[in-house]
């Protein structure tokens, strides 16, 4: 008797999964699995003249936590998050940048227009550092603590609403 209603049970489990998929807050992007791990090795040439490039060694021997921002001059959301990064830099938060698939002249124009929050700025023409960090697009932002361990990963542009979580992670990374 029960067996004859088995197909109905299968249907209901499918419907359950489907309802979950329709209603749950689902990840739209692929999270980096490296949170909690040391920054993988990479060494990037300076992206523009007059500013040092960025390597994992720089991040490992830092005084305290640092923000690492992956961006590009051709990316629209990066323009949207620029004012917030500028404000953070103004507060004294050390920020390093990785410019993905970009040209020095374009980066300079971008920094001129949207402000320059970066202490170091590495050039990543082949997305190697971006992939090494487990980022899947631009912009993305990492918090790396003083020992060079990745503590936080944010995908997409940083918006004011994201600040509390970012600050909490920052305090924890100190």
């Amino acid at each position: 008797m029960v067996r004859r209603f088995l197909p109905l049970l299968l249907l209901l489990s499918f419907v359950g999964i489907a309802i979950w998929a329709l209603t749950a807050e689902r990840e739209e992007q692929v999270r980096s699995k490296l949170v909690g791990q040391p920054v993988p090795a990479f060494a990037l040439e300076p992206a523009i003249e007059g500013k040092p490039g960025l390597s994992s060694a720089d991040l490992a021997q830092s005084e305290g936590p640092r923000l690492v921002n992956i961006f590009a001059s051709w990316c629209l959301p990066c323009k949207a998050e620029a004012p917030l990064l500028d404000a953070l830099a103004g507060e004294g938060v050390p920020i390093d940048g990785i410019a993905v698939r970009d040209r020095p002249s374009d980066i300079l124009a971008f920094l001129d227009e949207h402000g320059d929050p970066f202490e170091r700025l590495g050039n990543d023409p082949r997305s190697e550092a971006m992939i090494a960090l487990g980022a899947s697009g631009v912009p993305e932002t990492f918090i790396v603590d003083g020992r060079g361990v990745i503590r936080y990963h944010h995908q997409g542009p940083l918006m004011p609403a994201d600040l509390p979580a970012l600050r909490a992670a920052w305090e924890e990374a100190r």
């Binding site: 004859r4 209603f5 197909p7 109905l8 249907l11 209901l12 419907v15 309802i19 329709l22």
Partner: peptide, 25 residues
């Protein structure tokens, strides 16, 4: 709209499977 289709399919397939379980014996 996906939710609407899901509702329809749950209803139709569910009803049909109920009839199946009830009558096929």
């Amino acid at each position: 709209r996906g939710a609407f289709i899901l509702f329809l399919l749950t209803f139709y397939i569910g009803a049909a499977l109920l009839i199946f379980g009830w009558k096929i014996g």
